[in-house]
């Protein structure tokens, strides 16, 4: 499955962190380092199922833990209208 960043969502990576405008609230948020890493992968259209391995490797956590964190993050982004 490929989680897609919705059309019209404004975002920019600045100094290693993503600044994203939440479409529903029109609010600018700054993602933390992990969030920015994931957002960068999503921007590059990396399939969701491949992200836990990349997260696990980068942050030295188990793929299962990375998968849980990713699911939570994606849920939040979908709720905010950022991902489809």
């Amino acid at each position: 499955m490929v989680c897609k960043i919705k059309k019209g969502v404004a975002a920019r990576e600045i100094k290693g962190r993503y600044y994203v405008v939440l479409p529903k609230e029109m609010k600018l948020v700054k993602l933390n380092k992990t969030g920015s890493f994931i957002f960068g992968l999503l921007s590059a259209r990396v399939p969701e199922k491949l992200i836990p391995q990349k997260l696990a490797a980068r942050y030295k956590v188990s793929p299962a833990c990375a998968g849980r964190d990713l699911a939570e993050f994606i849920r939040e982004l979908k709720k905010a209208g950022v991902l489809s």
């Binding site: 920019r12 600045i14 100094k15 600044y19 609010k27 600018l28 948020v29 700054k30």
Partner: peptide, 18 residues
């Protein structure tokens, strides 16, 4: 608030965020 923070970071680092 984030815009203010972004303005400060980008002004210091000369990043044309606007």
């Amino acid at each position: 608030m984030r815009e203010k923070e972004l303005a400060e970071i980008t002004e210091a680092d000369l990043i044309p965020a606007w």
